[in-house]
Design a protein around this nucleic acid. Structure first.
Lengths: 194, 194, 194, 194
DNA sequence: CATGAATGAGGATTCATTCAT
DNA sequence: TATGAATGAATCCTCATTCAT
């Protein structure tokens, strides 16, 4: 039991180090040896937990993506009214992207780069279902525009990634007011024009 | 003159090869030797045109970014009415992202990755000025929401990058109808609510 | 007693696995971990039975060599007439090389490779004495050529190794007729010309 | 031209180093870095001449095998009478195995080990044809036993490998007398009994 | 006795960059 | 200007061996 616990700790340390180093240097500029050093293990130990470097980032991606969606829907109840439900989820996602910006940044890099296996990418998408369901419901009720989920995501959610990156680069800080404005823009872009 | 012409051809071939290879493999997984091969020159020749690998991608980034903004504002007249002007630019940008998707993809990778020097990043932003001017004008006239340009960009323009990537991955095809819907979402998100 | 029995089983399993893996991959391309896996023990367990990898192959070599000579002389009686005795031994050796070809192959690899300690090599040679004694007797009786034992071995016995390897590679199958022909060649090469 | 010459020299130096190091340590215990050092080139240079380590030994094997057969048949004329022709070839082969014992040892290791690709092994066999032709002729003329070429090789030629190895190990020195005795044994084993 | 986890040392291979031509 | 050969410095990964349990 103690052994097993220790193992999970090491795996976590490796995942954490991977996120930080890949964020700063990119996948291929992050040597396994540095990951090992940052996680306080021997390079060889990585291979007890992951098949190879590709597997390490794939699993890290899936881990972070799962954490992201878990966070997004943590307090969401599928019976909530559309607008309120959307706002709730949107705020949680905004929260995640800005507070857990290291993790969000890692996802952004994975999503705009050929560094993740297609299979792992698919695996990561799965957990977004509650949002898609909400949109489905919203479309039926005539509250959400009857357009492709890809378009809805592009306008309602994805801009947060851009804002997070911008903030990360120090060009701009997203305060409460900005956040409210962003939400209004998001909602305006997907709600039915009355 | 003939020699100079030849040189420009080689430089262009190198830039082109860089875009294609970095798109498919990422910066660090793209060896100089492969770039040279694809451009039909010797590896050593690259160093006649670029200082080193970093310089090569930096310059490629600036080139592509310049091409992007040039395309975006090609037929734009700064005296055009706000909504019409925005639509015009938006359509050009959408056009570029979808038709020159290789180049757009390259920019997306650069923008979400630590592969470009901060200096070159700044250099690339410069040429967006006409759009910022349009927004300035729009805000003054009470047509565009008086919010940060970063927010406006995040909602009006950046979603096109997401849609381009989605389409590139084959998950979804953006047809005329989608494009019109996307425009409506973009405009809705930044126009003043009346 | 039960424990001791168990131990011998493990040692045997390890020796067996070593033979098979070294045959297929060679000494250095055979990891201890694979040997352990094939023998159904932990890598660490190997070190309870053998000092290190070198010791493991050395002991395996000695084991197999002993088995080989034991088989060769199993039914041999030192008072048998020369030609009959030689034929008897030769047939046993041929039998071993062809039926226990895995073991014979292992010996061939050890004997043509710097993988075995000189000491273990010497140890392995010891048990061939009965054959040398037979030859001694044969020389005295004027039946066997009065030449070096090395020459006798090279012509009377060693060709069987070559034939075994050839057969192992599938180039050729040694049937009863071939075997008889081989024996004739062997005997012709060492018997006194009358 | 100077460049090309230099290249061939490097390739030769690499092949030479490979033979010596593999003889002393075996294939897998011979690091590329040591081969490079002994050949006075950088490790990376090896990969300009050979695809990888396997290719390096394969090509070395083929080179040495070609040298061996070229040496064996250097002064052989296919119209020579059988016994004389055989003796001539046999002597050349013995000469090669004993004088070029480094090369012969390398072949012995390759032939008793899974270190060479099957394809290269086949390639190496090709050049033995003149000997097979001689045997063919000998069988027709009733001078050589009408048995498989594999058997003939096993008894007439292969023992020389064993004797070479034995001599290399210092257990025994093959002088002129021994050599004559060896030839008699070889010939006895394959010639028709009259 | 037996083990699975852990690791340091090492090995094959790649690659950005240089240099002689 | 243009090149192909050459290379030292990484980088990923493996493996014999040890150690805490």
């Amino acid at each position: 039991m103690a052994k097993l616990q220790k193992s999970i700790d090491k795996r976590n340390a490796l995942v954490k180090a991977t996120i930080e180093l890949v964020n700063n240097n990119g996948f291929h500029a992050t040597p396994m040896s540095k990951i090992a050093k940052m996680a306080n293990v021997s390079p060889a130990t990585i291979y007890l937990y992951f098949e190879n470097k590709q597997d390490l980032v794939n699993q890290t991606y899936i881990d972070v993506k799962a954490e992201y969606t878990k966070y997004a829907f943590a307090n969401y109840d599928p019976t909530t009214p559309i607008e309120e439900g959307f706002k709730m989820i949107w705020k949680r996602i905004a929260d995640f992207k800005l507070k857990e910006s290291e993790h969000a940044m890692f996802l952004a890099q994975c999503d705009n780069t050929p560094m993740i296996d297609e299979e792992s990418r698919q695996e990561g998408i799965k957990h977004l279902q509650p949002l898609l369901d909400l949109w489905e419901r919203g479309k039926k009720e005539g509250i959400i525009k009857p357009i492709s989920d890809y378009l809805l995501y592009a306008y309602a959610i994805n801009p947060l990634s851009f804002l997070m990156m911008t903030q990360k680069r120090g060009a701009f800080t997203l305060d409460k007011t900005h956040l409210e404005e962003a939400y209004q823009s998001a909602w305006s872009s997907i709600k039915m024009c009355q």
